[in-house]
C-alpha cells in the first residue's frame, strides 16, 4: 500500500535528508524505522503521510503518486493516516476531549457520533476519566497517549508514529509499544520511527544518513 521508488528528498538549502530510498510496505504490517537522529526518519514519515513531497523518485500511496497530486488533494490523502508527532503537537488551549475531537471536526463528523468516537479513543488509551483535563495537567506519558487517541479517533488505515517513546521511561515506553501492537493486531498498518528498537518485534527499516541500509529489498 506504500511504495517508495528511488526517493530522494532535498530540503531548500541543499540538505539531503533521504537518498534514493526504495521499499514497499504492505497492508497490515508493523514496521519500525530506526536510525540515529538526523538519519531521515522524520522525513520518511512526512513523505509517507503526504506532508512533504519527494524531490525525485516516486511515492505511491494506494497507487496514487503523491508527487503529482494537486495541492488541494493532499488533505484528503492525509486523512488516511493517524499521525503521532515527536513533540505531540497537542493544543494546550483546549481539553483532552476537544483535542481528540479535532480530526473528527476536520472530517465533518459531529454531534453524538463524534462524542462516542472521542470517548472510545480515550478509553482505548486509558484516559477516559481525564476527558475534561487540559493537556498541561497531564503527565508526559498521558500526553503521549492523548496524542495517540487523537491519531486513532478517525480510524485511520495507517498509524504513523515519530519517536513515540522518546521522552518516556522504559515502563511507559513498553506500554505504548504494546498499544501499537494491539492496533496492528486488528489490522491497522503501523509505522513507528524510533532510535532504539532493542526489543522490537516486527520488520525493520534502518536509515543511515538518509540511505536505507537494512530492510532493503533484495
Amino acid at each position: 500500500m506504500i511504495k517508495f521508488d528511488k526517493v530522494t528528498k532535498r530540503y531548500p538549502g541543499g540538505h539531503e535528508a533521504l537518498r534514493s530510498v526504495t521499499f514497499e510496505i504492505a497492508k497490515g504490517e508493523l514496521v519500525y524505522i530506526t536510525g540515529h537522529s538526523g538519519a531521515g526518519k522524520s522525513t520518511l514519515l512526512k513523505l509517507i503521510a503526504a506532508i512533504e513531497r519527494p524531490t525525485t523518485g516516486t511515492v505511491l500511496l494506494n497507487n496514487q503518486n503523491i508527487g503529482t497530486l494537486r495541492r488541494a488533494a493532499l488533505p484528503y490523502i492525509r486523512r488516511n493516516f493517524g499521525m503521532i508527532f515527536q513533540d505531540h503537537k497537542l493544543l494546550y488551549d483546549r481539553s483532552a476531549f476537544d483535542n481528540v475531537a479535532l480530526p473528527l471536526a476536520i472530517d465533518g463528523v459531529a454531534g453524538r457520533e463524534a462524542g462516542k468516537r472521542v470517548r472510545a479513543a480515550l478509553d482505548k488509551v486509558g484516559l477516559l476519566n481525564r476527558e475534561k483535563a487540559m493537556p498541561i495537567a497531564l503527565s508526559g506519558g498521558e500526553q503521549q497517549r492523548l496524542a495517540i487517541a487523537r491519531a486513532i479517533v478517525s480510524r485511520p488505515a495507517v498509524l504513523v508514529a515519530d519517536e513515540p517513546t522518546g521522552n518516556l521511561d522504559s515502563n511507559y515506553a513498553h506500554d505504548i509499544m504494546a498499544l501499537f501492537r494491539s492496533f496492528n493486531e486488528v489490522g491497522v498498518t503501523v509505522l513507528v520511527a524510533t532510535h532504539d528498537a532493542g526489543n522490537a518485534e516486527g520488520r525493520l527499516l534502518h536509515l543511515d544518513h538518509g540511505a536505507l541500509t537494512e530492510g532493503v529489498p533484495a
Binding site: A72, L91, P103
Partner: peptide, 16 residues
C-alpha cells in the same frame, strides 16, 4: 498558529 499547523498536518483543507 499551532491549531492551524496541526489541523493542516492531520488533513484539514484550506477551506476548513
Amino acid at each position: 498558529r499551532e491549531e492551524i499547523e496541526v489541523s493542516k498536518l492531520i488533513g484539514a483543507t484550506d477551506r476548513f
